[in-house]
Each structure stands twice: as C-alpha cells, then as structure tokens.
C-alpha cells in the first residue's frame, strides 16, 4: 500500500488499495505454486542406512526398516560395511552368530556364557524363537528388500579387508561402492541411520 493513499477515515480501503493488494496476492500465489512444483519435481523421499553389525539381532533392524520404507514409496539404500557385510553374504547370512557374553539382558552369567559352544547355542535358540514367532528369516528379508527395489550395497574396502569375493553375496547386491558414494547418498536423503 503506498503512503500517499491512506485508508479513508472510516477504515475502508480505497479501490486503488484493493487492486494493489489483489496484485500482491496474485504474485504470492504464483510464487507458492512455482515453489510447490519445484518440490514435487524433486526426487522421491530417500532413506539411507549404514549397517555395520553382523550379529543375528543387529541384522534385522536395517532390513526391516529398509523394506518397510520401500513400501512407503521411499528410495532406499543400505550401505553394508565391516560386519554388516555378513548380512549380504549368501552363506554366512544363514548362520549369523549371537553372543550372550557382555549382554546383560541374556539370562546367563558371563562365566557360563563364555564356555565353548555357548554362542552357537544362543544363536540357535534365538533362531528358533524367530521361527516360532512368524518373524521372517534374514534371507527372506533380503529377497523382499531387493524385490522392493532397495539398493543393498556392499562396501568394497571391507569386501577386500575381510577377504570376500563379489560372488559371495546375494544376486542383486551392489558392489564396488565406497564411503564417498555412501556419503553422497546420505547428503541427499531425508533419513540417515547408522546401525
């Protein structure tokens, strides 16, 4: 509103004021709609998970979240590094370990949990529970994630470090990727998690 056309004394706006306001509103509406188009044209929602653990219990959260996010229409990348590679290793993923040593939630004293064979027994008990509770196996979750378009990546540096071969991993797993590509994905993502 220009300073030389103040509202009339009874508080009404003059026709000139109204025309000016209408113009301003129209300009703002155009701006909002342009911005909205810009946002809509942007890429889909994205989530990146960095999976660093390979025990049976820690293999589940990244895969469950990844496949669920894919069902919500997210573009999902899970970057597996260090022991997280075990999840993608076709053979090892079927026999992931679990230790009760140092886990105060396990109903076993550390002195007993440390005996030979106890880790295998603990893992077997957990696996039985998983089956009894209708929870999917790691293999099923990997197949489901891949089928849902989740990009499961195996960090090349740790593949070399742990002496694995690209053929050791499930078909569909992306290899030949490193920290830089993971970082770029994270920078573009709406959700970034380190598991």
């Amino acid at each position: 509103m220009s300073a030389d056309t103040p509202p009339s004394s009874d508080g009404e706006f003059s026709p000139d004021d109204l025309a000016e306001l209408r113009e301003q509103i129209e300009a703002l509406e155009t701006e909002v709609s342009d911005l909205r188009n810009e946002v809509d044209e942007g890429s889909a929602d994205r989530m990146v998970i960095i999976a660093t653990k390979g025990t049976l219990d820690m293999a589940y959260p990244p895969l469950i979240l990844a496949s669920t996010a894919a069902a919500f229409g997210y573009d999902v990348t899970v970057f597996h590094t260090f022991w997280g590679l075990e999840i993608l290793h076709e053979e090892n993923s079927k026999d992931l370990g679990l230790s009760s040593v140092g886990n105060p939630n396990m109903p076993l004293p550390n002195a007993i949990a440390a005996l030979p064979g106890m880790d295998r027994m603990t893992a077997r008990m957990m696996r039985n529970r998983i089956e009894d509770n209708d929870v999917a196996s790691i293999e099923e979750l990997i197949e489901t994630s891949l089928a849902s378009g989740v990009d499961l990546q195996a960090c090349q540096m740790t593949i070399d470090l742990l002496g694995y071969d690209e053929d050791d991993f499930y078909d569909g797993v992306t290899t030949g990727v490193g920290a830089a590509s993971a970082f770029q994905d994270m920078a573009d993502a709406d959700i970034q998690l380190l598991v």
Binding site: S67, T68, A70, A71, N133, D134, V135, A136, T144, S148
Partner: peptide, 14 residues
Amino acid sequence: KGQNCPMPVIKTKG
C-alpha cells in the same frame, strides 16, 4: 496369516 512385521505391510503394498 502366519507372517509377522514387516511382511503384512510390504505384501499389502505389493
């Protein structure tokens, strides 16, 4: 039936 989280949602989406 007989499938636990997260399968029902994922299969629903499919």
